[in-house]
Design a protein around this nucleic acid. Structure first.
Lengths: 261, 261
DNA sequence: CGGCAACTTGACGTTGATCAAGCCATGTGG
DNA sequence: CCACATGGCTTGATCAACGTCAAGTTGCCG
């Protein structure tokens, strides 16, 4: 397990101002306008901070949760299992993401959520979240944008898994991870350490660990990535983008501007 | 092209009561409570009815649409292209579905939308949709549930494409298509004609047309499916479910009850 | 009846899975 | 600080699943 939190992952935990949920608020502000009052209202949500170890289960398929977990630090993923025991990771969540905005509306969880690394999570009662979004349309809008963005990423993953070669898939995923992490942490790319084991990369991409290993080797030969010890770094982002046919459109980064104007 | 509309697809066009958007309202009612006033408000939306031929483009990646299309009859899909020209269908939409609830919030379309069959679509100005959901929280909630459900289906597709064998994939897709169509049409399964060419099935599943052909033959040998002429019918749904490890949980059909109670 | 698109089938090639063995990094307890 | 245990990484050999190419055939509509 690669579960130790590397430096960049805690980057944002430092810069606060609205208490533990600061990072969540900042993430929403990336794509939505929120008034000072809206921000305070979020910060005032009742919550319980909970720590998880690496490889811990947060939500199980079939659960009917009463709490809305918000990820403050660490990495977490959604996954599903097939009958044969195959595991597919269907979404990746980073610090600042709400992990289950869905259960207020679709009551039964349709997937599992698990930690990659050690993680800190704020648990907010669903009822309070519901009251908040009812009282404050701007927050409801921001949450919806978050949901829509996750949908867009799912679609890109379908293209990635369905139609790209394994080397392209790996390269594409690395690009996405970098750009998404960059949005919250803005760390120099040379220090950016991809926090996944090869087995997890395999589950993210619908491949086998063995094959991931070979593709990483191939990407390293191409000078696109570098492996030091057990760690994986991006060495040439442009090369990764070329290899994988990456276009950042699906991350809707331009909507930052749009929603603020 | 298999683009002719078969009998069952127009099934619901008949039973109206709220004008052209009746089918949309009925679909929302499947998983949400809407008052008589809410329903009338939807029915009163200004709209332009537009007809499309099979294989027509409705929305292109990069567009910034000002209209919200609602599918009244026919089939439509979302798709993305990879650099190599590979096409991946990332979602399938059936009569009664809103095709683009997203553009009010993420302004640039991140995928294309195209008709499978001839289709009838109601075009509603985005501004009117926005005003409606702002004025009527119950409608906003119903739309959100629709968006979340599409997300759940995407996740199941990721599992399907990433971790199941090609025969399972085909069987799984056929199950999903049947259950979703059943929700709007409720036609006897023996008459239920799957409205896709083998090439389209291939794009839906990240496979090649040739391989789809072989898998259909295999499913036919197993008695799960029947082909008459160029048409495809489900003969043994239970067999398809067994083969594909299908569980309907992700379609959240139980939330019908939950949201009405 | 002619033309076209969709379907079918076979031969062959490639990608990525599977199986298996060994290696290396990291953390732990003596 | 070293010995060892453990989990993750690496590598090779083999194989099955699926893709590719190509040449028909069939159903369908004008």
């Amino acid at each position: 397990m690669n579960g130790q939190a590397t430096a960049w992952m805690d980057y944002h935990a430092r810069s606060s101002g609205f208490g533990p949920l600061s990072i969540f608020i900042r993430k929403l502000l990336n794509r939505s306008m929120l008034s000072a009052n809206d921000q305070s209202a979020i910060a005032a949500l009742p919550l319980r901070i909970q720590s998880f170890r690496a490889d811990a289960t947060i939500l199980r398929e079939g659960d009917r949760p009463g709490l809305c977990p918000i990820l403050l630090a660490g990495f977490v993923y959604r996954y599903k299992l097939s009958a044969g025991g195959g595991r597919q990771i269907v979404a990746l969540k980073m610090p600042g993401d709400a992990l289950d905005l869905q259960s207020a509306f679709l009551h039964t969880a349709d997937h599992n959520i698990r930690t990659v690394t050690a993680a800190t999570i704020a648990m907010v009662p669903l009822a309070d979240v519901e009251a908040l979004v009812q009282a404050r349309p701007a927050i409801a809008r921001a949450a919806l944008i978050d949901i829509l963005l996750e949908g867009s990423i799912s679609r890109e993953w379908l293209l990635n898994i369905g139609r790209r070669t394994s080397e392209q898939r790996v390269a594409h995923l690395l690009c996405e991870i970098f750009y998404r992490a960059d949005e919250i942490a803005g760390l120099p790319i040379a220090d950016f350490d991809i926090p996944f084991t090869q087995e997890q990369l395999a589950d993210l991409l619908g491949l086998t660990p063995v094959h991931i290993n070979r593709m990483l080797k191939s990407l390293e030969r191409a000078g696109a990535v570098e492996r030091r010890g057990r760690r994986l770094f991006i060495r040439d982002l442009a090369a990764l983008e070329t290899i994988s046919d990456f276009s950042g459109l699906y991350l809707h980064r331009s909507d930052l501007a749009d929603n603020r104007y």
